[in-house]
Design a protein around this nucleic acid. Structure first.
Length: 550
DNA sequence: CGGTGAATAACTAGTTATTCACCGGTGCCCTAGT
């Protein structure tokens, strides 16, 4: 395609704005494509490794589009970082955050900014968009670009933990349907599809960048007893140099491991979500300015960490998906210097993950909540339903999401109402089906985590295959390649079998529609919409014709 | 699902084995009381 004068003009404006308003030397090709698309009014889903500069995309796009950009950001601390970062730039658009921690004065200033003119940025948590008043004010101010930062939260948190993430799509439409940018560092294609669907994006430009991190050496250590594993974790970290992270499964373990490491003479700090805000800030600060050798943390330590010289990331047990694992592990070596990434693994450790993934409400509970909705006549608030059905607010959230997914009720800002009047038994039945599907998919994601830990092939190839990227046959920088074991079972991407190359849509007589994720010599991994990941034997597939390209 | 710790049992007097209930991650928000 020819570069139109208009297109080259936009390109020029992007370069100039980057240099003069933000003080950046250059714009990455991936960033530029995203900004150009947004400038033209197209939705963008950008999956880019941390450190690639996702924030720059919406910041520059705001300057080019010249209006109000709304940024949904999951943590108040992150919002504060963004506002501060923009304040430090030479001539960046003004930015402010609307959240519960801003006092009346700051709130008024934030709204004054939003209701002004010119390029400007307003950050808020998804919960804020649950308020009718906030939506009306934003609509009146005229939203010109809608950004969802850390967009994987839509998929990972929306269903039970922070339900407002699932209602962002409706909020976007109510705000006049400006272009939408969804940004995340981690999303394999099924998660990309869910983000796009839940946010009601229209034919988004999908950009995936920077997954292959050649400087990370990948290793997995398998253990049989938990005592032996603990010793190995401690011994391993004692040998590391530089600052690093140890991820553990529970809050209690953060303290236990931190103490053991301190006894070995390391400056170790525990970190988890139940700690006070001030204690958390202190750990962050110690980590950043090199006063810590290692931070021992649950998954709470993560988003917003911006330290380039993390030399190692060790996991004492696996998280609940490879997305989560690679995001956590990927915090190592962002300066492109060599860094070590190690997973300590016992298959029993996946039990805790299964426990978290299997919390679906029982049918009786679902029926009870549904009866409360029926009884409420008209719309009901979740809080009222929780009281009427005598369940926790969290359970109500989970039930209502299932009933919504099953098409029985509609849940929006105004409340909950019945859209398909059925008996409580039928409602419970349909919700159970939705819950089972969700659990199957979660379970299959855990199984992919197991697959990575137990693979006999190259670890990097496994990871990149999971994220749908091409990988070298052998990376030379993982424990499998180093030991030579990988040669026994090489991952092969071009066996001449074009029918099942990655991203091919397929149908399986039993599992239904799916997409090929990766292929190896003897097996094919497929993500099925209603079943999750399945690894199929290539031989069975070929001989019995189980899988057909659509 | 697995780890943990308290309570109980077993068998003989303070230690060891078994059973069983319980717990486990991620953060917005708002409101009441210091």
């Amino acid at each position: 395609m020819l570069v139109t004068p208009q297109a080259s003009d936009i390109r020029q404006r992007i370069e100039t704005a980057a240099r003069e308003r933000f003080g950046w030397e250059s714009v990455q090709p991936g960033q530029r494509r995203a900004i150009e698309a947004l400038a033209e009014g197209r939705d963008v889903l950008a999956v880019m490794a941390t450190g690639y500069g996702k924030s720059a995309i919406y910041q520059l796009a705001t300057v080019i589009r010249g209006g109000l950009t709304v940024v949904v950001s999951p943590l108040i601390a992150l919002q504060a970082d963004q506002v501060e970062g923009l304040r430090d730039a030479p001539d960046a658009p003004p930015a402010a955050a609307v959240n519960s921690r801003a006092g009346a004065r700051r709130l008024a200033a934030a709204w004054e900014l939003a209701e002004g003119s010119g390029p400007r940025i307003l950050l808020l948590a998804p919960e804020q968009l649950g308020s009718e008043e906030t939506l009306e004010r934003l609509a009146a101010a005229g939203v010109d670009l809608f950004v969802v930062d850390e967009a994987h939260c839509v998929s990972s948190w929306g269903h039970d933990f922070r339900p407002d993430y699932l209602r962002l799509g409706a909020a976007i439409e109510q705000l006049g349907r400006s272009p939408v940018a969804a940004l995340t560092a981690t999303a394999p294609s099924p998660v990309q599809a869910e983000i796009s669907e839940r946010l009601r994006m229209r034919d988004p430009l999908v950009l995936v960048r920077g997954f292959d991190r050649a400087n990370l050496s990948l290793a997995v250590e398998r253990h049989t007893s938990s005592d032996e594993k603990k010793r190995a974790v401690i011994d391993g970290i004692a040998e590391e140099r530089g600052t690093g992270l140890l991820y553990v499964a529970t809050r209690r373990e953060t303290g236990e491991y931190a103490q053991s490491l301190q006894e070995r003479g390391l400056r170790a700090f525990a970190y988890h979500g139940a700690m006070s805000a001030s204690a958390r800030r202190e750990v962050h600060a110690s980590f950043h300015d090199g006063a810590a050798d290692v931070v021992v943390a649950t998954s709470a330590f993560g988003m917003g960490i911006d330290k380039a010289d993390v030399r190692f990331v060790v996991h004492a047990s696996p998280p609940d998906s490879l997305d989560a694992y690679y995001q956590e592990a990927g915090r190592a070596g962002r300066d492109d210097e060599p860094a070590r990434v190690r997973l300590h693994y016992r298959s029993e450790d996946l039990g805790l993950r299964r426990f978290f993934a299997s919390g679906s409400p029982r049918r009786g509970t679902v029926a009870g909540v549904y009866r409360a909705v029926l009884h409420a006549s008209g719309t009901a608030k979740p809080k009222e339903l929780a009281e009427a059905a005598e369940v926790s607010s969290r359970t109500v959230t989970s039930v209502l999401n299932l009933l919504s997914d099953a098409g029985v009720v509609r849940w929006d800002r105004r409340g909950v109402r019945v859209v398909d009047r059925v008996s409580p038994e039928v409602a419970a039945e349909r919700a159970a089906a939705a819950a089972e599907e969700r659990e199957r998919i979660d379970e299959s994601r855990i199984e992919m985590m197991r697959g990575y830990a137990e693979t006999s092939g190259c670890r990097r190839a496994f990871l990149l295959g999971y994220f749908g990227e091409e990988a070298p046959e052998r990376c030379g920088n993982c424990d499998r390649c180093a030991s030579g074991d990988a040669t026994d079972d090489p991952v092969s991407r071009s066996t001449g079998d074009e029918a099942f190359s990655p991203n091919t849509s397929v149908v399986h007589p039993e599992f239904g529609a799916g997409t090929v994720m990766s292929t190896e010599d003897d097996r094919i991994t497929v993500f099925f919409e209603h079943e999750g990941y399945k690894t199929l034997s290539r031989q069975a597939v070929e001989e019995r014709g189980l899988l057909e390209a659509e």
